[in-house]
Design a binder for these strands. Structure first.
Lengths: 232, 232
DNA sequence: TCCATACTTCGACCGTAGCCGAAGCATCTC
DNA sequence: GAGATGCTTCGGCTACGGTCGAAGTATGGA
């Protein structure tokens, strides 16, 4: 009855709380050292080292040596997508963390999902782009329209450059807090990067949440207006 | 550092080999009894009972009592998608099962993925549908075209009925053996069901693989011709 | 050269989770 | 009712995996 690939291995890999915490932290997109990851996992450095070796052997993590530090990142965008999809699933089944805590609202509002914007603001941005016809939501997929290409060119995003890369331009990524799609792919990445560049927002130290400046928030909301639908 | 939903729980749930085998077996779409699942897990009935209780509590399985049997199915299409995506990931990292075995080729050729067709034939079917303009592959999503609606009507699939359901019509589902997309969603389900109805194919007893009859295979290949592309 | 920092390896400990035998319910058949 | 079948619960065994202290290896800086 042993059919197909072995999901138990990666399941077990993700199934340890310490490792899961590390992976979740790395979904923030930043490379972290073994010491930092030990802290997020709530374990000592020795234990973390063993965990990281396993994650690396399993192909989930990519180490990069820099001086006497070892920085770890998720191996791939596919790893990030797997983690996010598991988060979405966990959220839908009510497998939540123990303490909702004060940081939770900030996280729900805007956070980094590997390299693009997620949370309420991420979902709102995609909604707005679809509403103004910059992106086509067809079936369960997303596609850039000709009009959208113009729009992004105006914001200062070079779509031609993005198209040159092998990575898909648009991808829909299910948001675990909003339970709706937000924009991933190279376009999603470029948009978030531009918000950072313009000083509209910044990432926080030990968390995945993204903090908008008052001015940045004003600009963001103006650029991606909310649909004022009158609910039936 | 505890942010977001708890992925460790479901990770651990899937991370046990016996449970993983049970889940993989249930991806075949059929409801299975506790005894049958104990067999696929390679464990005794008592142990299986404990595992099944955990999976049920975790929201992965749905039990249905029928006489003195208890049938289990995956709780949801989302569970099936999670399992399939983990299989895809595992395959991409080379986490394969120990013995490739003689059943492997049949599985790669055509198998059930929850309720639709997967494997070489599943991928080929979608390719053919896209090539003939019945389905639009835009971005990473799929959408039924007007022409496609006609086509399916001719094959005897009532698209209007499918549209009435809340479930999306078309969905792309990544195939772990082919590493490319095949057609899921209610349309994918209806197509597979029609193959069974017409007697073109049948499911096998203890496996996910789908066996085509010689005549069925002929009809299937005629209906979904292969693109004879001359590779550049 | 010497020490501090970052990390790994070793060895031992311990708890949990998986496992099965045996017994206990429930349901169907005769 | 009696007996068979399907499944769950209980109790006890075992082993694997996570944990840390201590010692060992690299790298950087003074």
């Amino acid at each position: 009855m042993k059919e197909g690939p072995d999901i138990a291995q990666i399941g077990a890999l993700i199934g340890d709380p310490a490792r899961a915490n590390m992976l979740a932290a790395l979904t923030g997109g930043k490379a972290l050292t073994a010491t930092e990851l030990a802290a997020v996992g709530g374990i000592t450095l020795q234990t973390a080292s063993a965990h990281l070796a396993k994650l690396e052997a399993g192909g989930l993590l990519l180490p990069r040596k820099q001086g006497r530090h070892r920085y770890f990142t998720l191996a791939d965008e596919t790893v990030a997508r797997l983690i996010e999809s598991m988060m979405g699933f966990a959220a839908s089944r009510g497998h939540l963390r123990h303490q909702p805590g004060p940081k939770e609202p900030a996280l729900r509002k805007a956070r980094i999902c590997y390299d693009h914007l997620a949370g309420d603001y991420g979902v709102r941005m995609l909604d707005s782009l679809v509403a103004k016809g910059a992106i086509d939501a067809v079936g369960d997929g997303l596609a850039l329209t000709a009009k959208g290409e113009e729009t992004f060119q105006c914001i200062g995003i070079n779509v031609a450059d993005l198209k040159a890369s092998r990575r898909p331009l648009c991808r829909s990524c299910l948001d675990w807090s909003e339970r709706r799609a937000h924009l991933a792919g190279s376009l999603g990445k470029a948009l978030l990067a531009s918000f950072f560049d313009k000083g509209w927002a910044r990432r926080t130290a030990g968390s995945r949440s993204v903090i908008f400046s008052p001015e940045g928030e004003r600009q963001f909301l103006a650029l991606f207006p909310v649909e004022t639908l009158v609910a039936a």
